[in-house]
Amino acid sequence: MNPFKRITPLISFTLLAFTACSVHSGDIQPSYAYITNQGDHTVSVIDTRHHQVTHTIQTGKAPVGVAVSAKLKRAYITHVEGQGVSIIDSTQHTIIDFIKVHGSPVGIALTPDSTILFVADWFDNRIMAIDTATHNTIHEIKVGNAPAGLVISPDNKKLYVANRDADEIAEIEIASMTIKQRIKVGKHPFGLALSHHGKLIASVNVQEDSISLIDINTLQQDKIKTGYHPYCAAFNSDDKTLFVTNTQDDSVSVVDVTQKKVIQTINVGNTPEGISIDHANNSAYVANWGSNNVSVINTKTFQVITTIKTGDKSRAFGQFILQPPSNSPP
């Protein structure tokens, strides 16, 4: 009789159990930050648990905008000079498709239900709606001059577009694909941010060194001074503060949403552009175009906790953190 016959399955079982345990240790799956590097035609994929670049993906020419879907396990990347959208499989970190767009796509956003991808053509003043199942363009909407930042309401019903050279936000009803109203904001709005409850929208007014904070229901608007040439913004997990990147001050302004003023200024790398927050680990990721890296800010203490080397001219314009559904904040 071979005594090992009984022991081997036991060992296997123990190993399996151990492996399963280690996968779940910390209770979270990795979140990834997709950082577009416009200068070297790559996307740096950062594992936000370890603050490390785990993959560098060669893309088409000059990647800029990012949208992600945990549901579809996809990241979508705009190529303003390459005239199209690359689709990355977030489980393999490889490009699986390219959607040709005749124009100069910059801004990009997905409906929260991941059914429609919206892409803004910077020069032809239009928004394209792309079906994420078929990759076909299902609609085109004429908007204002130089459409840039895009955000979509949590109920999938409204798309907001920053029309940079029209100094306005256009509100589009997604069901009818028509513009319902135009909201005047400060000079040259580029990035937009929407609070998690969907009631507040922030427009980043580049040429006016300010943000416009707008109550969607009442349209009451407050202007708050930021640093020099702000670019993008992101609401903190509790919607009580807003982080704004100041491209020409190499800093991030922390705006208190209730007090309507900047309560802290954080020094980051050179020419910070895109910003997104990983709510599971209370970290804001800031893409520094000038210094080719990402500053990571603790969103509770407002301190820079680390800097991660990425590629040439990091931009990451859009919501670029892919967070598995199980990591949602309580």
Binding site: Q38, G39, V80, E81, A146, R164
Partner: peptide
């Protein structure tokens, strides 16, 4: 003075 190109250039 209005819109500029979409891709900022850098010399470092």
């Amino acid at each position: 003075a209005l819109a500029h190109g979409p891709s900022p250039l850098k010399v470092d």
